[in-house]
Design a protein around this nucleic acid. Structure first.
Lengths: 119, 119
DNA sequence: ATAACATATGAATACATGTTCATGTGTATA
DNA sequence: TATACACATGAACATGTATTCATATGTTAT
């Protein structure tokens, strides 16, 4: 066996036709991984609050820290994660750095999520 | 001080008006928590694959395990998480349990996520 | 230049979580 | 009733991650 992980499932195969069909129509593994990584960014209470706050207004780091009653450091770390995921962008004005949303999909994704939990 | 966590941020307040305005228009903490929990479910490579597979067809646990080349146990645990989040439902036919999607928002959320990572 | 302030960041810690392993439950069949 | 199969589940383990703490960077004003 070339791949040591090739047979993790020892079930009797029931619907090979479905398995083959589904497999051939799945997005690439890289795409799926990237999507999971994206949703992981949404899946944190602090980050979802930051995102939700930025729907209304651009804010500086200290504003967000005050709003959420958290340390400047914690917020800064999370803004870094959000920026890496290309969900927020920032601009510097003197000592102050302002963050705002950087994606048109974010609001839509958030709203659909909210719709689900409120259904 | 009534709340021991009330002053985690020691920044000089810069934009109190924005903070007040944003705070008064934020969804409730419970809603935000629920949304984060929902996206946390999407934010796992195995679960996103399961969701994506179920877009195409209902599948039994062993089918999914074979498709993803993972143990039946691991898949079963993740299906439990998905069901708790009301993203999938199941039906039993004899010994076999078939899982399928149980939400109209899921596809939209996934597609928007895919659109973001492919942009 | 020095002090003050806003922000960023590396390391450490504490907590959450995904998979495995062993085993239990439910259903069909011999 | 006994066996086999599909699935579920609790505990253990390993890994990932959010926050804190200390400190560094960058900018402004004195």
């Amino acid at each position: 066996m070339k791949n040591k992980d090739a047979f993790k499932c020892n079930c009797t195969t029931i619907h090979q036709d479905i398995i083959d069909s589904v497999r051939s129509n799945m997005p690439s593994g890289e795409d799926l991984y990237a999507v999971a990584e994206l949703f992981k960014v949404f899946g944190d209470n602090t980050r979802i609050k930051i995102i939700c706050a930025l729907f209304q207004s651009e804010m500086c780091v200290c504003d967000i820290a005050k709003l959420l009653n958290m340390t400047q450091s914690a917020i800064s770390h999370q803004l870094r994660v959000l920026k890496k995921a290309r969900l927020v962008k920032n601009r510097r004005d003197g000592k102050v750095v302002y963050y705002s949303l950087d994606d048109e999909h974010v609001k839509y994704i958030f709203d659909q999520g909210l719709a689900h939990v409120n259904e």
